[in-house]
Nucleic acid binder design. Structure first.
Length: 879
RNA sequence: GGACGAUUAGCUCAGUUGGUUAGAGCGCCUCGUUUACACCGAGGAGGUCGUAGGUUCGACUCCUACAUCGUCCACCA
């Protein structure tokens, strides 16, 4: 050990980069290079961060948890693969680059043209990918970079096309004319779950509508009305049902059909709604049920179409105020009220969504397919979770998953953006530029992996929803559609670890895609972590300036401390509040581990690995090994079941409160502990490695400079744990603590050594045997151990279980204070004894409680009665 | 409107199938440089476990209702 290398405080910045480099160069992130015979595999697909992003704290928590799991399984002898990659994040990336270009040159993507725009997007992506990959490394992630993938790389693009073609041939993908969510800013469709809702106060217009009065928030859609609907059997309107009526409007009269439909709430408003099938989902469904025609009046830019007369060309908002004016003039407006409702907006840009009729590609979620034994993809996705093939942690998310799947409608997968996987469909004699449903065309369609031969074919200009490719992630990254060795070895993956916020977006879609295309589940366990909020529980955001940047805190406190702060004190599915002081606390801990190691390594003659558990000499030796073995069992069991936090807490407690506070201190008193100290240290480093891989490796090099800690075998508990050892040692600890307490209460300075008399009864042998330890830790000069008797006058006194402790401090004894202290203590024990006595007198307790519990209470009572007696005597002696 | 979660020490959170005199870290108070560590050591104060009922010999733990906060889903003109 080099002294200068082992500085007083651990400096993470001096080691982290070189350690990571050593790991990466060792090749052990790659499962093919792992030593030993590894028959079982354990794999995780890393949820791909957006190719454009910066690492944020949400990524950090995901990386910490996944790396912990992979490192644990690697040490357990599994063939471990953690496959990293990035996602092209279609709309998000396109929007971002569009903004950048606009800011730089004032140009739009249309000015540049498709090819040039895509080139610029790709340049941008390559640059930010390098950035985020290095940030992933900073966290210590032991993922296999040789297998890294990108959703737009060649192999994955082929997987996407193959999936599309296969689903098309099975009739699962179809092109249809439907009402879609349309963002007039992005000029694209949005999936149902890409629409967000914003509470907004708007106006509700009560309008005269022929013979009816009805309420609407969108009077401009009156131009597209083709029906009026009432609740079935509503007496007020029976005479109109089934009739066609002429309604006066701002562009003259128009005809509507009156229908009955259960979608109408007879209690809301007047119980009548106007039906605009082309621009409202509910209205569209009503129109479908009653064979009502639809009339599109709003175009893809959110403007009124040519069929709107003088309103043509206005935005919907402009049109609304204009049309309201005109209607007021005609006396068609009865009243206008304020009205709170949820405005639908685009989740990417916040623009209000315009429902429009459009020709798009969909995945049919209700089609029974042969490949799934006649089930629908929806049924299959439900089944694998219900039958526990896939286990979601925490399991309460099962319910929300079921609910979401059950209510899933056909998934619109085409997007009118350029950046993404182009839809593998070609048309001839097409009018694909028009999405208007009224233009049915006779066109040839070709769906395939490559462009068809022959003239006049044009590829569909649209691209696929980014979640379509993400849905293939677990198997497309392993080589599918080729049946590769990796695919056979690592799929289904073992664990999917991600935030609960994308359970639907992503996890559900992977399940759908994998069960259909692969015929197997994508992963066995789903671990959902919560959101990281700031110390006040507020979502982190740049505008609030409450963001904790993982790179900043790694630099300041080290990657290990950052990881610990994200791994401990959290439970799956629950949000976590994180503050910098918490990270600082774990930095202190890492430093503690460093200094324990430093002490051991400096004081040991020959730092080395110890193969077998060393033989013991003292109670402390037995105790620390027993505690270590308990810890190993606990950690192994709980890491297997993803209880990271409790494991971290337990190892932390062992390290600081057991090893450092007691055993290391005792090692300064009892000699000849070289082997045990080394043995404990080497196992402790192994236990910590999945949590804090950097500092443990730095320390490990001092024990073994040839092999990396990350591929060592996970520790095994050796031998049976003797409970009596732990009980005895705990008693010794309590005696020491009690003496320290007495000293402290009486302001006896640590440098002042005093005598002690311990009346130990049946524990005399134990206390005598441990008297050296006790006297050094409690800073005693002389210690006298008796079986019984001898009341020491003018002493501080206390009782530990059945043991009486006297510290003769004649002269300095503050009798009044001491009496007071003992009286308080006496009352506390007396109350407890009374409580136990009452319990044990309760007939029903005696009848119904289990025997062991009653026995336990009886022993407790007896012990405390003895204690109470002794305190009383001590009080008497003082008086 | 429906579902879910949270509510435990000043703050951030643990608390496994009901059987401890309710725990940890940070913060706070007192004392302390005993050569691993002041990113430290020793000791201490601090909680009727959101409220009200109920089940039970026994409830922080189970049930019911309510309150506050939060999230998701559905969206009704």
């Amino acid at each position: 050990m080099q002294d200068q290398e082992f500085s007083k405080a651990y400096e993470p910045n001096n080691y982290e980069d070189s350690i990571y480099k050593a790991w990466e160069e060792s090749g052990f992130f790659n499962p093919d290079n792992l030593p030993g015979k590894r028959t079982k595999s354990f794999s995780i697909s890393m949820p791909p961060p957006n190719a454009t992003g910066n690492l944020h704290i949400g990524h950090a928590v995901m990386l910490a948890i996944q790396d912990l799991t992979i490192r644990f399984q690697r040490m357990r002898g599994q063939k471990t693969l953690w496959l990293p990659g990035t996602d092209h994040a279609a709309i998000a990336t396109q929007n971002k680059v569009e903004k950048l270009i606009k800011a730089k040159s004032g140009k739009t993507r249309h000015d540049l043209g498709r090819a040039e725009f895509l080139k610029q997007v790709n340049d941008f992506v390559i640059q930010s990918q390098t950035n985020i990959k290095n940030q992933v490394r900073k966290m210590g992630s032991s993922c296999d970079w040789t297998r890294e993938r990108y959703t737009l790389d060649e192999g994955l693009t082929k997987a996407v096309s193959t999936a599309f073609v296969e689903m098309y041939n099975d009739g699962l993908i179809y092109r249809g004319s439907r009402i879609v969510n349309w963002c007039p800013r992005c000029l694209s469709t949005l999936a149902d779950d890409e629409v967000e809702y914003k509470p907004t106060t708007e106006k509700l217009y009560w309008i005269k509508y022929g013979p009816f009065t009805l309420a609407t928030s969108r009077p401009e859609t009156k131009l597209g009305d083709t029906a009026v609907a009432v609740y079935p059997g509503d007496e007020r309107y029976q005479k109109f049902v089934g009739k066609k009526i002429m309604i006066p409007g701002v562009l003259g009269e128009f005809e509507v059909t009156v229908v009955e439909d259960k979608a109408v709430d007879p209690k809301f408003g007047t119980g009548v709604i106007k039906v605009t099938p082309a621009h409202d989902f509910t209205d569209y469904e009503i129109a479908q049920r009653h064979n009502i025609v639809l009339k599109q009046i709003i175009n893809e830019e959110g403007k009124m179409m040519a069929n709107c007369g003088k309103y043509a060309g206005l935005t919907t908002r402009e049109c609304r105020s204009k049309i309201v004016e005109d209607m007021q003039r005609m006396g068609l407006i009865e009243k206008i009220e304020d009205y709170d409702h949820n405005l639908s907006i685009c989740y990417r840009c916040g623009t209000p969504v315009e429902p429009l009729p459009s020709k798009q590609w969909f995945i049919n979620v209700n089609k029974e397919v042969k490949k799934l034994g006649g089930k629908t993809i929806k049924q299959k996705a439900l089944e694998v979770v219900k039958e526990k093939e896939i286990e979601i942690i925490p399991d309460r998310f099962n319910k929300t998953y079921y609910h979401w799947i059950e209510n899933l409608r056909d998934w619109c997968i085409s997007r009118q953006i350029w950046f993404g996987h182009r839809i593998p469909v070609w048309y001839r004699n097409t009018k694909h530029g028009t999405r208007n449903m009224e233009h049915e065309t006779s066109e040839e369609i070709y769906v395939g992996l490559e462009a068809p031969k022959g003239d006049g074919w044009q590829q569909d200009p649209d691209s696929l929803d980014t979640w379509f490719s993400s849905g293939l992630w677990t198997f497309s990254t392993l080589g599918w559609p080729e049946i590769t060795k990796d695919l056979k070895t690592f799929h289904p993956t073992s664990l999917m670890e991600t935030g609960y916020d994308i359970l639907f977006f992503w996890v559900a879609r992977m399940i759908i895609m994998s069960t259909y295309l692969m015929g197997e589940i994508p992963f066995k366990h789903v671990y959902l972590h919560g959101l990281i909020r700031d110390e006040n529980g507020v979502k982190m955001s740049k505008s609030l300036d409450n963001v904790i940047d993982p790179l900043d805190v790694i630099k300041k406190y080290g990657a290990d401390a950052t990881r610990l702060s994200l791994l401990i004190g959290t439970t799956p599915g629950n949000d976590m509040n994180l503050s910098e002081s918490k990270i600082g606390g774990y930095r202190n801990f890492v430093n503690k581990l460093w200094n324990i190691s430093r002490y051991i390594l400096i004081n040991v003659k020959n730092p080395r690995l110890i193969e077998k558990q060393p033989s013991v000499k003292t109670l402390a030796d037995q105790w620390i090994l027993a505690e270590l073995n308990l810890l190993i069992d606990f950690a192994t069991k709980n890491l297997e079941s993803y209880n990271f936090s409790v494991v971290g807490e337990k190892i932390y407690e062992f390290t600081w409160s057991k090893l450092a506070d007691w055993y290391v201190e005792i090692s300064k008193v009892e000699s000849d502990k070289e082997e045990i100290l080394l043995y404990i240290l080497q196992n402790l480093l192994k236990l910590w490695q999945p949590f804090t891989p950097f500092v443990t490796q730095v320390i490990w090099q001092n024990l073994d400079d040839k092999n990396l800690l990350m591929i060592q075998d996970w520790p095994k508990a050796s031998g049976k744990v003797d409970k009596k050892v732990i009980k005895d040692f705990d008693l010794v600890k309590e005696v020491v603590s009690t003496i320290r307490n007495l000293r402290s209460e009486s302001n006896i300075s640590p440098s002042q050594e005093i005598n002690a008399v311990i009346v130990a009864g049946s524990s005399k042998k134990l206390i005598e045997q441990e008297s050296l330890v006790i006297s050094r830790l409690a800073r005693l000069k002389k210690i006298e151990v008796l079986t019984s008797g001898k009341k020491s006058k003018a002493s501080l006194s206390a009782v530990v279980g059945k043991i009486e402790i006297y510290l003769p401090v004649a002269g300095t004894l503050d009798v009044k204070k001491e009496l007071n202290r003992l009286t308080v203590e006496e009352k506390r024990v007396r109350d407890f004894v009374a409580h136990l006595e009452a319990k044990l007198k309760n007939q029903r307790f005696l009848e119904r409680a289990p025997k062991e519990i009653i026995e336990k209470e009886k022993v407790k009572l007896a012990d405390h009665k003895v204690q109470l007696e002794k305190i009383k005597q001590q009080l008497k002696t003082l008086k």
